[in-house]
């Protein structure tokens, strides 16, 4: 539903930019947050605010893979099957989840809880195989941990990202992507263990970058 509040927030997004059309990507994230998917109504609202045609908005909404034209479950579960994760076990995990949830790629379980999708590289290769739930990192998965994860999500148990907060719903996540923070930035660690392996060795060995120059002139030569 694009109610008055959402409509006002869509305008607010457009106003962040020197040229309002720049707001379109975050605006479409807000449409998904409000309506659970990209809807014709949401497309019309964006078009009206940006003073462009609905066809132009549709052209953008169909280009980017995060925009969905069918209802998405409470939890969007992504399994990385790009080469590195696939080899490390992503293919086995994705195959197991399809069987376990009885859905195909980009389909939602009958209870409306889980939408399963195989995704491309999500920039966490040192934690392979990687899954994302509502775009939060779930690092170092196995077929067993993955099935447990989706079972917990369906049963409404608390699930936490391995490098972030308790998993919120997909619609709540989409609101943050639209640029409306949810106050959860301080949850989770500074970095996961793999992010720190090199730093840990440097600390143990006493390795550092050279001492800095104190002379400003040096930098300006």
């Amino acid at each position: 539903m694009i109610d008055e509040k959402t409509y006002a927030e869509l305008r607010e997004i457009a106003d962040r930019y020197p040229e309002k059309r720049s707001g379109l990507l975050p605006m479409l994230h807000l449409v998904q947050s409000a309506a659970g998917q990209i809807t014709p109504e949401g497309i019309e609202a964006c078009a009206e605010i940006l003073e462009i045609s609905a066809a132009e908005v549709s052209g953008v909404a169909t280009f980017y893979t995060m925009y969905k034209r069918r209802p998405v479950g409470d939890y969007h579960v992504g399994v990385c099957t790009n080469t590195l994760c696939a080899v490390m076990g992503g293919d086995a995990i994705f195959s197991r989840l399809k069987d376990h949830l009885d859905v195909g790629n980009d389909e939602t379980t009958e209870d409306g809880k889980i939408t399963l999708e195989h995704i491309e590289c999500n920039a966490a290769c040192d934690y392979a195989p990687v899954m994302m739930v509502n775009w939060e990192f779930m690092d170092n998965q196995t077929p067993a941990s993955a099935t447990q994860l989706v079972d917990d999500l369906r049963e409404g148990k608390e699930v936490r990202s391995t490098r972030g907060p308790k998993i919120c719903t997909w619609r709540e996540a989409e609101r943050v992507l639209a640029g409306f923070p949810d106050g959860l930035a301080d949850e989770g660690p500074s970095a996961g263990p793999a992010s720190l392996v090199g730093l840990k060795i440097a600390r143990e060995q006493g390795w550092t970058a050279p001492a800095g120059s104190t002379s400003e002139e040096k930098a300006n030569d």
Partner: peptide, 15 residues
């Protein structure tokens, strides 16, 4: 120089 030179990563292990 040392084998590893943490600059950008140097703060990552801070609380």
């Amino acid at each position: 120089t040392d084998t590893l030179t943490p600059v950008l990563t140097d703060d990552w292990d801070a609380a």
